[in-house]
C-alpha cells in the first residue's frame, strides 16, 4: 500500500540522505555567492543612478503602484513555496505539486509585468545604451528577472518530472532546494524595490 510506504518517510525527508544534506549545503553556499554577484550590480547601480546623460531620470519613470503589485505578487509566491514545503511535512505530494504550480504562475505573472514595465520605459526613451543609469538599471533588473525565469523553468521541470511519483528521500531535496532558491529571489527583490524604486523616487 502506498499510504504505508509514505508513512515510513522521516519527518525531514529532504535531509534524510547524505546526498540531500550535501545539496542543501551546496545550495546555501551558492546563495552566499549569488549575494556577492548581486552586490556588484547594486553597487554599480547606486553609483550611476544619477548619471542619466540628459535621458529620462528614475523620478520621471518609476510608477510605484506597478512596483507595489509586483512586490506583492513575488511575496505571495514566496508564501506559496513555503506552503509547498509545509505540505512536504505532511508527506502530501499533491499539495507540494499544487502549491509549486501556483508559485510558477505567480512567477510568470511577475515576469509579464516586468516585461511590460521595460516596454513602457523603452518607449519613454530609456534604452539600454541611453545612459549609464539605463545600463546599470537594466542589468540589475534583468539579472533578477533572469533568475525568476530560471526559477520558473526549474520548478516546472520538477513538477513535470515528479507529477505521478510519490514523495521520497530522492525528490524531497529537489523540491526543498527549489523553494530556498525562490525565497532568495524574493530577498533580492526586497532590496531592488527598496534601493532602486523607493530610494529612486525620494
Amino acid at each position: 500500500m502506498s499510504a504505508e510506504q509514505t508513512s515510513t518517510l522521516p519527518q525531514y525527508p529532504e535531509k534524510a540522505t547524505l546526498e540531500g544534506r550535501n545539496k542543501f549545503l551546496g545550495l546555501w553556499f551558492f546563495l552566499g555567492g549569488e549575494t556577492a554577484l548581486f552586490a556588484t550590480l547594486f553597487g554599480t547601480y547606486l553609483g550611476l543612478r544619477n548619471s542619466t546623460a540628459g535621458g529620462p531620470t528614475a523620478q520621471e519613470l518609476f510608477s510605484l503602484p506597478l512596483v507595489f503589485i509586483m512586490t506583492v505578487i513575488l511575496l505571495v509566491s514566496s508564501l506559496t513555496s513555503v506552503l509547498a514545503v509545509m505540505a512536504m511535512r505532511r508527506k502530501d505530494m499533491k499539495g507540494i505539486i499544487r502549491w509549486f504550480i501556483v508559485t510558477v504562475i505567480l512567477g510568470l505573472s511577475f515576469l509579464g509585468l516586468e516585461i511590460y514595465e521595460f516596454y513602457e520605459y523603452t518607449h519613454a526613451g530609456l534604452r539600454w545604451s541611453e545612459s549609464a543609469f539605463a545600463s546599470a538599471f537594466y542589468t540589475l533588473l534583468g539579472t533578477h528577472g533572469a533568475h525568476v525565469a530560471f526559477g520558473c523553468g526549474w520548478i516546472t521541470a520538477l513538477i513535470v518530472r515528479n507529477f505521478r511519483r510519490p514523495l521520497d528521500t530522492y525528490n524531497a531535496p529537489k523540491f526543498y532546494l527549489a523553494s530556498l532558491y525562490w525565497h532568495f529571489i524574493d530577498v533580492v527583490w526586497v532590496f531592488i524595490f527598496s534601493l532602486v524604486y523607493l530610494l529612486g523616487v525620494i
Binding site: W28, F29, E34, T35, A39, G43, T44
Partner: peptide, 17 residues
C-alpha cells in the same frame, strides 16, 4: 555562508559607491 556573502556584499556596494 549567507552572512559572509552579506558582508562581502556590503563591502562591495560601499566601495563601488
Amino acid at each position: 555562508a549567507i552572512w559572509t556573502g552579506f558582508v562581502v556584499a556590503l563591502l562591495c556596494i560601499v566601495s563601488l559607491a
